[in-house]
Amino acid sequence: MFPFMLLLFSVSLYPSFSISTDTIFPGESISGNRTLISQGGTFEMGLFSPGNTGNHYIGIWYKGLPQKTLVWVANRNRPVSDPLSSELKLLHDGNLVLLTSSKRQIWSTGSTSLVPNSTSGVLLNNGNFIFRNISNLSNVAWQSFDHLTDTWLPGAKFKFNTSEKTVLVSWRNLNDPAPGIFSASMGSEGRAVFSLFNRSKAYWHCHDSTGYDFELHPSVKTEDMINFTVDSNENGSYSQYSSVAPFSLSRIVLEPTGLLRQLVWAKHTQEWKVLWTQPAQKCEIYPFCGASSNCNQRDAPLCDCALGYLDYLKMKDRLGRCERRNTSNCSGDRKDHFFLMPNTHLPNNYDSVMVENTEA
């Protein structure tokens, strides 16, 4: 009898802090390969490392797909290097923080509760991570859907005409989730008008009054459409969308190239299928091809080096056409020659000089 009582006593002194499948409670943490998994098994949350960078971030991604597809990133600007000793911890005051190996706080939700140990964090099956009151589950104190990164998921409110306006910001590149130069926001004189920006310069607008005159991919059928809605309340206006069967997974993402795309997951081919891409003309995105280059929507590849005419011919002979990935080698600091380029649109911030004629 005595050993049994001793065992009960030891358990009460050292309670288990294992994380439940989709929920994190006050005092619990996530580190290493430990993750939260939404109740329906659609999404997973934990530490991830893009490419071979050695940098680790807290993120949410689709669970079980052949290639990890991120939909949300917490510490975009401040990665951690050691995933085993770093931890995402829910403090007893209701604040979720990311701590380095030295216990230095580098990211937090900034949310606190008046009553200690009253808040839990839950990863929902729509990809939204929320803080809610343990005794009142309808009381949501914080949610990742209010802090979108580069991806807009079904059910998330894209807010406009409000102080908490939603803005999507692209990754810097495919291996760096830090904020890039491209952004997307909505709202123009009270209408749900989508706009894309390179820093502060707008390069595409959706002019339809509903905000959705997107040109669908030619292979997309009518039944593949996505339902968009626009609504308002006392806090402002917002837009939402939902997926239509047979596609249960859908996402709208602003890519590092400046393209805004909607994709759906095709189970039969195990790949993402593009519903639409905007701008439809990639050359509308400045600077899609890089410095000292030109973009030709009617040619393949799109990008050529915009050098002096003689240098341009030499480069074509030597390298063939400048591929999209090679235009960073284009250089304008050679002897210039002028030649005619019809149907060309210059960037909004171009510099002009007066010349006598276009003869070399």
Rank of each mutant, 00 (worst) to 15 (best):
L313E: 14
P79M: 01
L65A: 02
M1R: 10
W171R: 06
F214Y: 07
P50S: 03
I130T: 07
E323G: 14
Y212Q: 14
D93F: 01
T149D: 03
R78D: 15
E359M: 10
L96A: 03
Q297M: 00
T21V: 08
I252G: 03
M341D: 09
S352A: 12
Y238P: 00
E359H: 15
L98K: 09
F160M: 02
E234G: 00
Q281R: 13
Y14W: 13
E215P: 03
D93G: 07
I181A: 15
L254A: 04
S20F: 09
V230G: 05
G41V: 09
G308C: 06
G155M: 06
S10L: 12
A280R: 12
G46N: 08
T277L: 08
C283Q: 02
A178R: 07
P83R: 05
V264K: 07
P218Y: 05
K103L: 08
L254K: 09
D93M: 07
K282F: 01
S102I: 06
D231P: 00
D82K: 07
S49P: 04
D208S: 15
R104D: 11
R318L: 15
K89Q: 01
E44L: 02
A192C: 11
R325D: 14
N33E: 14
F9G: 00
L313I: 05
C330A: 06
N296Q: 12
F2W: 10
K267T: 13
N343A: 03
S81Y: 12
G121E: 12
L36F: 07
S118C: 04
R76W: 03
R324Y: 13
E271Q: 15
L96D: 06
L346Y: 08
S250M: 03
P177M: 04
M315N: 15
P154V: 07
H207K: 10
N55A: 06
T269K: 09
C305D: 10
R191H: 12
P3Q: 09
R191T: 10
L313H: 03
S144D: 02
E284L: 01
S10D: 14
M5R: 09
N198T: 02
L302K: 11
A74G: 04
G308R: 04
K159L: 08
V244A: 12
